[in-house]
């Protein structure tokens, strides 16, 4: 579903913030994306949601070489990807309902059904009373939930969430994770960037771990390797080994989640 082939990326003339990234995420898989602040998590997600082009290498998504995609082809691809931005990026002058409805409107949905669907989802994330509120009047956690609702409303083929539980209390964080897991079970390939190791452990999915721009694959249950002292060559993927290093979809039981 998402295939990175020897990707390097830099901002402008700066040094590479992502180096030799190679991996393949199978359709329907769920992965966490971890790593210290500034390691390049957001940058990696930007490549996946087509906000940034790599400075080298090839990215294949939906069986299409997106690094070679023409500008006109991007909207079609982007509509299949739901994104929870780290800084939410809601439209301040629209209400919560209008914000969440945008992806549906953009792909041509009409009036009443949209409204109903959106209100249902907002109720589910605990924003029943804030439907008509505009983002500037919402708390950080409330904004985050609006952003999440907007990302999942269309049940996208790929869901990319950047720190989706950074601003909410543990109970809501659990609820949101549960939502992602359910969505993933329905077939959405999911990548969640997070610092919250307790959630990672609870769900127990494979991890893409970034360290100083390099990617390390960590199987569910394994600990984060000690850095600096240890070598990660065995974990880092190069394009030649990709076929054996594919990660299958991780089936997660939602029993323990309320």
């Amino acid at each position: 579903m998402i295939h990175f082939d020897n990707i390097g990326m830099r901002y402008g003339m700066g040094s590479e913030v992502l180096k030799d990234i190679a991996f393949n995420l199978k359709p329907g898989s769920l992965h966490f994306l971890t790593g210290p602040s500034g390691a390049g998590k957001t940058s990696l997600l930007k490549l996946m949601y087509l906000a940034q082009r790599p400075s080298r290498g090839k990215i294949t998504m939906f069986n299409e070489d997106v690094t070679a995609a023409k500008r006109e082809d991007l909207p079609k691809l982007r509509r299949r990807i739901g994104v929870v931005f780290q800084d939410f990026r809601l439209l301040d002058h629209l209400t919560a309902v209008e914000n969440v409805a945008l992806p549906l409107r953009i792909s041509g949905g009409k009036g009443a059904e949209i409204e109903e669907h959106v209100e249902e989802l907002l109720t589910w994330v605990g924003l029943k009373g804030r439907m008509k509120s505009r983002p500037p009047t919402l708390s950080g956690g409330e904004k985050q939930r609006v952003a999440i609702a907007r990302a999942v409303i269309k049940r996208p083929d790929i869901l990319l969430a950047d720190e989706p539980t950074g601003n909410v209390d543990p109970a809501i964080a659990k609820r949101i994770m549960h939502l992602f897991v359910e969505l993933n079970k329905l077939g959405t390939t999911t990548v969640i960037a997070t610092h919250d190791m307790s959630l990672v452990e609870e769900i127990g999915a494979d991890r893409l771990h970034l360290q100083e721009g390099r990617l390390h694959m960590i199987r569910a249950g394994e600990n984060t390797p000690k850095l600096k002292e240890e070598k990660f060559d065995s974990l880092a993927f190069d394009s030649g080994k990709l076929d054996q290093k594919e990660f299958g979809p991780k089936v997660i039981s939602g029993d323990d989640m309320s």
Binding site: Y49, A51, E72, L74, P75, K76, L77, R78, R79, V83, F85, R89, L90, L91, L102, P103, I106, S107, R150
Partner: peptide, 13 residues
Amino acid sequence: RETIAIMHHLGAQ
């Protein structure tokens, strides 16, 4: 500017 960028990310042509 930001509104337009967001619209693009959501797949608006």
